[in-house]
Design a protein around this nucleic acid. Sequence first.
DNA 1: TTTAATTCGGATATTTTTATCTTATTTATT
DNA 2: AATAAATAAGATAAAAATATCCGAATTAAA
Lengths: 144, 144
Amino acid sequence: MFSKACEYAIKACIFVAQSSIRNERVTPKQIAEEINSPVAFTAKIMQQLVKNNLVSSYRGAYGGFEIEKDRVAQISLSQIVSAIDGDKIFNGCGLGLDACSESHPCPVHHQYKTIRQDLQKLLDSTNLKQLALGIETGLSYLKT
Amino acid sequence: MFSKACEYAIKACIFVAQSSIRNERVTPKQIAEEINSPVAFTAKIMQQLVKNNLVSSYRGAYGGFEIEKDRVAQISLSQIVSAIDGDKIFNGCGLGLDACSESHPCPVHHQYKTIRQDLQKLLDSTNLKQLALGIETGLSYLKT
DNA sequence: TTTAATTCGGATATTTTTATCTTATTTATT
DNA sequence: AATAAATAAGATAAAAATATCCGAATTAAA
């Protein structure tokens, strides 16, 4: 469904959100430990998130990544997914046709559309604050 | 969502079903032309479908691929997807956790579960006969 | 001003997926 | 028996995704 990079990005964002709420910046190393991902690859992904303006970064000593507290509840999963995987999953044809549309549909177009829309609705309506809270209260986990 | 191989497999199966209903076997070349895919790669995928017992193959002159007429309506998209992509999409964790479950859920487990189930329901309930008919009647298309 | 801690950027390596090529095997027809 | 048409199987190639490494730039604090 999502690329590995995107899975890491989602988990990383949740952890950064959680830390940011506690006014703590985190490094790629801390993130990687927390979400069980390769450090350097995770760092690359963080750069993408910064470029896409979902996460803020601070260089130098006492630097790291954070998400402005006020924004935590405003950042949705769909923004993270779009930033890393693009919006093919929201717009693309289920069978990979370039020109799939209402008027020239692939065989699964109509069925697939429903799924896609449900997925988008879900990702739109799920934000980092909710997810961070879930971790914080022990309702869910970022690694096994 | 699906791998490219899986997208090809679905389209190929629909075309083979369509042909089989007309009592015609088809070659990888014909399939590739019809679904706009690379011939040799398509041939490999057909082999997998044969191994998974979804398609029958016949070697030698007048050979090719077919699906027994009686089975066309019995073969669902979920069977094709499972054969090519495995059932990670039906069972796997949305964030790639190995040990994601009701009692140890990832942050998106419950939301994701709904989507997964809807997808499975959809793929289970869509069969090759319906899809072939859609193409046959010009309601949908296998390529642009 | 030096140092240590950090992100950034580019180069490289590895693995997986996608794709091609070549040869062997099978089979209906002549 | 020979031939032509087909799938099967294995080797290889190319592209994309995943992952690592290293040096440069930045920054807070000592």
